[in-house]
């Protein structure tokens, strides 16, 4: 059998498994469609949005109409356009935070889990300490130190995520490290880095993928909170959390303004969570019933 046909077979098999998964879990399928729609909307924000998100007008706090689908805000900006342009901000924020978390957490977790001994003890203690601080408070403190802004605040959130991820990958590494195929690979003369990249990481990563999906929702909520508090996205740029902050200031005049951004956050977070839970039960059949 040639290498090429082998690859084709494998890809085919993978695709059919993917289809079977989505067919079996409607919630995951809907979530995936929603997130893909959100992603394309974010890429095409300039085309889809009828107005510039920054363009002000004299039409202040207008109710929804044909011209302004979701009305206008306190500076006369089109709420729908701001909502659409807030999408890429939120996705960027979520992925940035989770990437930072993985980039810091993964190496430390693998190191502690693989080496064990005093390094493991030290890393675990540091993880315990950081985890005993309420995460959003720590994120705010780190944002304050790094400087206010979307990127800095999401790096802060990522730093706060890293100990949890490190703890997860540490346990996984310890489990996989004891597997016989790792022993076997050692007798073939694999060096430690190769052992980690070829055998340990691929077999330890599954729960991390699930956790990362769930953390995307957490990051989204954190971004919303931080932007609501004025530590994230800076005006005049739109973000869902910051739109909520403005809507709240004018709640007595235009209460309907707080619904659109809130639902946008809720649905996106729901989609990430549903996808994560579905992945979890897909990867771990023993949990399917109880979770």
């Amino acid at each position: 059998m040639s290498v090429i046909s082998e690859g084709v077979v494998r890809r085919k098999r993978r695709r059919s498994r993917f289809v079977a998964w989505l067919a079996g879990d409607k919630r995951a399928a809907v979530s995936l469609v929603f997130l893909l729609a959100l992603a394309s909307l974010s890429v095409l924000a300039n085309v889809v949005a009828p107005y510039s998100p920054l363009e002000q007008s004299m039409d202040i706090l207008a109710p929804p109409s044909a011209a302004h689908l979701l009305g206008t805000d306190d500076l006369g900006r089109d709420v729908f356009s701001r909502l659409v342009h807030g999408g890429p901000m939120s996705l960027y924020a979520s992925f940035l935070a989770v990437s930072v978390g993985v980039l810091i957490g993964l190496p430390f977790g693998v190191l502690a889990g693989y080496l064990g001994g005093w390094i493991d003890t030290a890393v675990s203690r540091v993880i315990d300490t950081i985890l005993s601080c309420p995460s959003i408070v720590l994120a705010i403190a780190v944002t304050g130190a790094l400087g206010i802004g979307l990127t800095n605040s999401m790096i802060a959130v990522g730093i706060v995520f890293s100990p949890g991820l490190a703890r997860l990958i540490r346990v996984q590494t310890m489990i996989v490290k004891g597997e016989l195929y790792v022993d076997a690979a050692r007798t073939f003369g694999l060096s430690t880095p190769r052992l980690v990249f070829r055998h340990i990481l691929p077999n330890a990563i599954q729960p991390v993928i699930v956790q990362v999906t769930l953390l995307l929702a957490t990051a989204l909520l954190a971004e919303a909170s931080l932007s609501f508090l004025g530590l994230g996205v800076q005006p005049p740029h739109p973000s869902w959390g910051q739109m909520l902050a403005r809507a709240y200031a004018y709640m007595e005049i235009a209460p309907e303004q707080m619904y659109a951004p809130g639902f946008a956050i809720l649905f996106t977070a729901l989609a990430f969570n549903a996808l994560g839970e579905s992945l979890r039960s897909l990867l771990d059949p023993t949990r399917r019933r109880s979770d």
């Binding site: 082998e6 195929y181 022993d183 076997a184 690979a185 007798t187 073939f188 003369g189 691929p202």
Partner: peptide, 30 residues
Amino acid sequence: RRHRRRYQIIFQDPNAALDPRMTILKSIRE
């Protein structure tokens, strides 16, 4: 690492001795 390649082991549980994410050929070639 070079030397130990001449001293090999066959484990009791062949299932645990093969990386579940590698094809048979890849495992044998490793």
